[in-house]
């Protein structure tokens, strides 16, 4: 589904990703862990198409398409979704109106019929109960004045609405207490399927208690330095990243 080969990228001339290789197949859950500054969020941003970042080498194939050639909206159309670490506040635009536009533009991209008001409402109600989000939140200005937990739940709701093939969760647990993490994770789990894949980017292991990964990768200094099963996350939790740094230096 996603094939990243020797990806190099940076910002303002500074190289941050120094050759990433990663393959994700349908149905899999991958976690990328790593200390601050290792390039986790850069990887998420490059995959979603944020223009501040410059790709200097390598390739990304997503469902047979050259992902790096696509505009951000086309990536979403193809089935990529990025749950933001810091969802943007947009006063004056409600989540409902935003989603009405987004769902229909994505449907158009995918060659599906656009939804009329009644069909949209039906879809929205279904997804609302799936991710357990309150309607009041969705009629308010997008993310404006939302708590950290509400913002992340709103991201999960948007994800449910857009039915992506690959969901990237960028530090979805950051700034959340354990209850909020549990709720967000339950939402993510509710929309997982055999056809879809999830890439969880996190600093801490605790989110992985709720979204259990098939593979764990450790990102350090712009490279994936270690990959393993879910037990790797537990190992990191015990030893911390310093252990890895030492290992790297010895190697």
């Amino acid at each position: 589904m996603l094939q990243i080969k020797d990806l190099h990228a940076g910002i303002e001339g500074k190289e941050i990703l120094k050759g990433i290789n990663l393959t994700i197949r349908p149905g899999e859950v991958h976690a990328i862990m790593g200390p601050n500054g290792s390039g986790k969020s850069t990887l998420a941003s490059v995959l979603a198409g944020r223009s501040d970042y410059e790709v200097t080498g390598g390739s990304v194939d997503f469902l047979g398409k050259d992902l790096l050639e696509l505009a951000p909206e086309a990536r979403a159309g193809e089935g990529l979704f990025l749950a933001f670490q810091y969802p943007v506040e947009i006063p004056g635009l409600s989540t409902i109106n935003f989603m009405k536009t987004a769902v229909n533009e994505v449907r158009k991209y995918r060659g599906q019929e656009v939804l009329d008001a009644a069909e949209f409402l039906k879809l929205m109600k279904e997804k609302m109960s799936l991710v357990n989000i309150d309607k009041n939140l969705l009629t308010r200005s997008l993310n404006e004045g939302f708590s950290g937990g509400e913002k992340k739940r709103n991201e999960v709701f948007q994800m449910a609405m857009l039915e992506p093939r690959l969901a990237i969760l960028d530090e979805t647990d950051s700034g959340l207490d354990i209850d909020a993490i549990r709720i967000a994770a339950a939402g993510v789990n509710a929309i997982r399927s055999k056809e879809n894949a999830t890439l969880v980017i996190t600093h801490y292991q605790r989110l992985l208690d709720y979204i259990v990964p098939d593979f764990v990768h450790v990102l350090y200094n712009g490279r994936i330095v270690k990959s393993g099963g879910k037990e790797l996350a537990l190992e990191l939790e015990e030893t911390g990243y310093s252990f890895l740094k030492n290992e790297m230096n010895i190697a």
């Binding site: 198409g49 951000p72 909206e73 990536r75 979403a76 979704f81 990025l82 536009t101 533009e105 857009l162």
Partner: peptide, 9 residues
């Protein structure tokens, strides 16, 4: 970018 990342042109 936020809106575009949701598929909005």
């Amino acid at each position: 970018f936020y809106l575009r990342s949701r598929g909005v042109t």
